[in-house]
Nucleic acid binder design. Sequence first.
RNA 1: GCGUCGGUGGUAGAGUGGUCAAAUACAACAGACUGUAAAUCUGUCGCCCAUUGGGCUUCGUUGGUUCGAAUCCAACCCGGCGCA
Length: 401
Amino acid sequence: MVSISYSILKKIPSKLGRAGTLTTPHGIINTPAFVSVGTKATVKALTPEQILATGAEVVLANTYHLYLEPGDERVKKLGGLQRFMNWHGPTMTDSGGFQVFSLGAAYGKELSKVVKITNPEQILQERSSEGETPRLANIGADGVSFRSHHDGTLHYITPEKSIDIQHNLGADIIFAFDECTSPAESLRYQEEALERTHRWAKKSLEYHKSKPNADTQALFGIVQGGRDEGLRKKSAEYISSLNFDGFGIGGSFAKEDMETAVKWVNEILPEDKPRHLLGIGEPEDLFMGVENGVDLFDCVAPTRNGRGGTLYTHKGKINIRNAQYREDAGPLDPECGCSVCKNYSRAYLCHLFRSHEMLGGTLGSIHNLYFIINLVKRMRQAILDGNFDEFKKEFLDRYSA
RNA sequence: GCGUCGGUGGUAGAGUGGUCAAAUACAACAGACUGUAAAUCUGUCGCCCAUUGGGCUUCGUUGGUUCGAAUCCAACCCGGCGCA
């Protein structure tokens, strides 16, 4: 029995990009697609009905968070992730690998998923090591020990443990436990981390395949390797050699490193399996990813920005709290087809955010998710229509003007 | 009218002789956010220049005491409360 199946419908001529369909036990994902992030089994501020209305086809939850609260066993007992959160479409779970980074090397520092600086020298300076906040995640030989950020309890996650948790959660697509590294790490460290991630990938896969869940849940292996071409390619080759159902491309990037890294990897990954660029989702990055053969993206940006009042428009992002919108009776983005843009004024949204009303975060999330999901859908359509390049130029010219 | 307590930056509210252009919170004005430590976080917030920094004017009003006053004294103005 096969958990998922992927097929390509059309490619971007002489590029890696493609449009296809990914069939899961809980429905079809039309790729490329943007995956909504619902870390704790909720896309923050949205009901499943609202998630659906944004055009979302798939939701990604998090192993680490759900393991801590309410507990994966409990989720299993309550019918699994889909049933628990009342989301009936396809689901994914991240392995907790990102938390190795965010609660480890990046904890208490200026490091994040995408670093603006590109000069390696500068990135290395970001690595402040003395007397900093103690990490909540520490890497051991076979796994990672996490100090829970909400009750201080200690937890040890191994690749097998991560898979067990993800089996209990029951998402359609799950990820191998990996180590997301910072671009600030030395090449030597990247090598060491990559070896670890590869070892864990193999363990994750073997363990997964030994369980009946392998029939209903697909497992994606994650390519790492940082900013180094040799390591990235080595990782793509190694992960490709294992019998994963699909692939994730991970790591924290310097903004301008991202495109080359994605290219290196996707030139190697087998064409007939889906690829997921983990944690990426700003419009310009989505174009880059789609053009270079990425099928799936997930990113907290639309929802996190949406809750904070930074909203996407065809003319770039705006901060709806700004004074200039206080009496702006027009729609947020006249070119957007979402329910927020059709029914509410900028002035009203501005008021909601200024008065800290919950509805602000909800409407902001609905709009931003719709905007990003729809953007990727339009990219898909453009591939099918054979005019991806034109669409990309037309959109980005105005978006970044 | 008498007594009493009090009048501080947009607001609330610390401060009671120098380290005070004045804590803190809120508001205001901006900014950040990329596999969610996030309905979060950061900066600015008297005026004028400047990179550190410097100059000027502020704590009801006026006048004093003092090397030095938001802080002490006096008078006045305003408000709360109590008694007539």
